[in-house]
């Protein structure tokens, strides 16, 4: 196993501020989060489990059925603590996201903001042992990762686009993705093998499947769409097509790759 040890540090210097947070339905406009100690994060977790998990999930990874978004990565509606605070306080009109109770103190809303913030991994708070530069080189050369994965428009189509993978996967998850790619495979990357009524068999990545039809992309990037009733057989392989790199990469290689992948964000 890799020697990576990930230390997540919350370098939370509490700025002394003359801002006063009052109980009520205030909207935060220009303030950082003063309620961000581990105690606050834990209080936020408790509130989240009770009030928010029904839609966002106990793991805050969202729920396609309710339409509640994943809160563990980059947030689509807010890019700062203040933005998150305002959404919690005012809700999102026209959606099931209702405002919290009007009499909930701002301090508790901030604790919730702190908990949500703790779910996404701020790269500034993480020391990684690997080298981003070495990882980038490995990705394109010896590792041959770019034959399947695209970054910023360059690379293959047989795996997920990794241009912003650092926003949605933390270093531990990236490590698992490299060493044990079958552990967590999104259905988009399952493989389908289908044979039509004329006996023609095709295999490809599962672009989409529904009750009556399916669409795949084969190894040559051809897109195929079928009605299920046209098919004599449908086989689904719920595994990743990516090999494990346990044997082919050294621990330090893996460290470098993780550092590089984790650095891939919009701003970079």
């Amino acid at each position: 196993m890799s020697s990576i040890s990930i230390q997540i540090r919350y370098l939370l210097t509490v700025a002394i501020s003359c801002l006063l947070f009052t109980v009520g339905t205030s909207t935060a406009e220009d303030a950082g989060n003063l309620y961000n100690t581990n105690f606050d994060i834990n209080a936020g977790l408790k509130y989240f489990e009770r009030q928010c998990s029904r839609c966002h999930g106990f793991d805050a990874k969202g729920n396609d059925e309710t339409g509640a978004p994943d809160l563990t990565g980059r947030l689509s509606r807010a890019s700062s603590d203040v933005g998150v605070f305002n959404i919690i306080r005012t809700g999102v009109p026209g959606t099931a996201m209702l405002p919290v109770a009007a009499d909930l103190p701002d301090s508790q809303v901030w604790q919730l903001v702190a908990y949500i913030g703790s779910l996404s991994t701020d790269p500034a708070n993480i020391d990684l042992p690997g080298s981003v530069v070495a990882g980038s080189r490995l990705f394109r050369n010896r590792g041959d990762c770019n034959s399947c994965h695209m970054i910023d428009g360059e690379g293959g189509r047989l795996g997920p686009d990794l241009s912003r993978v650092g926003e949605r996967r933390n270093p531990e998850e990236l490590l698992t993705d490299i060493l044990d790619p079958h552990q967590e495979v999104a259905p988009r990357w399952w493989t389908m093998r289908v044979t039509d009524n004329e006996g023609v068999t095709r295999e490809g990545l599962r672009m989409n499947e529904d009750s009556f039809s399916l669409r795949i992309m084969d190894a040559e990037s051809n897109l195929w769409s079928y009605q299920k009733r046209q098919l004599a057989s449908i086989e689904r392989v719920e595994e990743s097509t990516m090999p494990s790199y346990t044997q082919t990469l050294s621990d330090s290689d893996v460290d470098d790759l993780v550092a590089y992948l984790f650095s891939l964000r919009k701003e970079n």
């Binding site: 489990e49 009770r50 009030q51 998990s53 029904r54 999930g57 106990f58 793991d59 396609d64 059925e65 109770a101 999104a186 259905p187």
Partner: peptide, 14 residues
Amino acid sequence: ERFTGGGGRYNQPM
């Protein structure tokens, strides 16, 4: 306030 005493989590994709 909500009074549910817990919750659930899927371990596989839908």
